[in-house]
Simulated assay, not measured.
Amino acid sequence: MAEEKKFRTSMGDGFIVHMTEEEIRSDIDAGVADAVKRGKISPLTEEEKNHLYNIIIMPGKVVGVEPGREVVSTNDSGSYKVSSKCMISIRRDEQAAIAERVWGCDSIDIGNTDYNYKTVKGIADREASTMRMALQKTTMPLFYGAMANLGFYTKPDGPVENWSMLLPDGRIEEAMEAQEEAIEHSVRDIVFVAEQIYNAGGDGINLDTTGAAGDADFLAALKATEIIKKEYPDLAVEIGMAGEFVLGMHGKLEYDGKRLAGMYTHDQVKAVEKAGASIFGAVVNTNCNKSFPWNIGRVCTFIKACTDVAEIPVHANVGMGVCGIPMNEILHTDIVSKTDKALIEICKIDGL
């Protein structure tokens, strides 16, 4: 009896494996079921799962969409990747030109290597100068990006008590108050930097890895967005999430009457819309112990639920360790391009 054909794919940690049709379809079903259970959302249809299976088994090193179905791209910390990742000394404004004219990027993020708004506030005028120089060299939209990163506001480096130290001691009320105080500091810093970037002629602000410190971190981004869009309505705001699920480090914070803790992508996007953001960067975490078929089935279920309700563009985050991309430094181009194709064709995303 001939051995059943196996197809090359990978695990969530990037380890290459070979799976049969039955194994792939079984893992797709399991990934979809996990998303349905956790997010309380609708599953992919049988037609969509068949489409996903056909994408997974495509033999090419790189796969793509049909002409006319391409989507635009945004990014985080894009303009210092050449110097930080490739160890080639080159200014950020020059890297922006490379991104536009060599890589064919649709936009780029002029971020500082110390990628948080608390740090950037102290050098905002110099960062604005970098933005001006980059604008002179490029025609594509230029964002300025950083993280709210609420943890930076805790002692000894910041002004508020460290809730991660208070919570284990059972000092719950103090921990909640510390997070609420940190929100106000963060909002002021984000808005201050946004003003400098707006005055320099920047096209947008990227609030990256939002919610990394939990629901307070998410609320800081939402509040800052409200102010930015009121003061500078022409300045685009992209809110990119840290994860599929908002952690309840505070637990009781609400926005527009809805509790932030526990929100999945399809709820997150509605809060982001309400705040006035221009683009939502959706995230679904990659499980390193599961296969690519399991992960991408789960990802497509979550992201499709998000795009079904979204009224602003959704750019799925396809960086390392999210939205089906394996958690390893050197990524497999077949897995990356299959992820992109699935997100575009099945989930109807607006960008990557």
Rank of each mutant, 00 (worst) to 15 (best):
Y53S: 02
V17A: 00
L247N: 09
C288Y: 07
D267C: 08
P67N: 02
L222V: 08
I205A: 01
G14I: 00
A236G: 09
V36Q: 03
K121F: 13
T20F: 04
G64V: 00
K252F: 13
S42M: 09
W163M: 13
E94S: 10
K137E: 13
G297A: 06
P233I: 08
Q196F: 13
A224R: 02
A124D: 14
A310I: 11
V63C: 05
R8I: 11
H266M: 07
I227K: 06
I330G: 08
D217L: 02
S186M: 15
F245N: 09
T20V: 11
G257N: 01
N112I: 09
D109Y: 00
D169T: 10
R8A: 11
I110K: 06
K137H: 07
I296F: 01
I330F: 13
E329L: 15
Q268N: 00
E22S: 12
D157Y: 15
C300K: 00
L219C: 11
A275Y: 09
D13R: 05
N328M: 14
G158E: 00
L219G: 11
P156G: 08
H250Y: 04
H51T: 12
A236P: 03
Q179R: 13
A194W: 11
M241L: 14
G319I: 06
N54P: 01
N206C: 10
I28D: 05
E195G: 02
D13L: 10
G204H: 06
G170D: 01
I346G: 06
K5N: 13
G204D: 02
S291Y: 05
I190Y: 10
K40L: 06
I303W: 04
A282M: 05
I110L: 15
T339Q: 03
G281C: 07
L166H: 00
E46N: 07
R25K: 15
G39R: 02
W294H: 11
G248V: 04
V237Y: 12
I228W: 05
A212L: 14
G145V: 12
I16T: 15
V309A: 14
Y53P: 03
I330M: 13
L219R: 10
C86I: 10
S73W: 10
D125L: 05
Y255C: 05
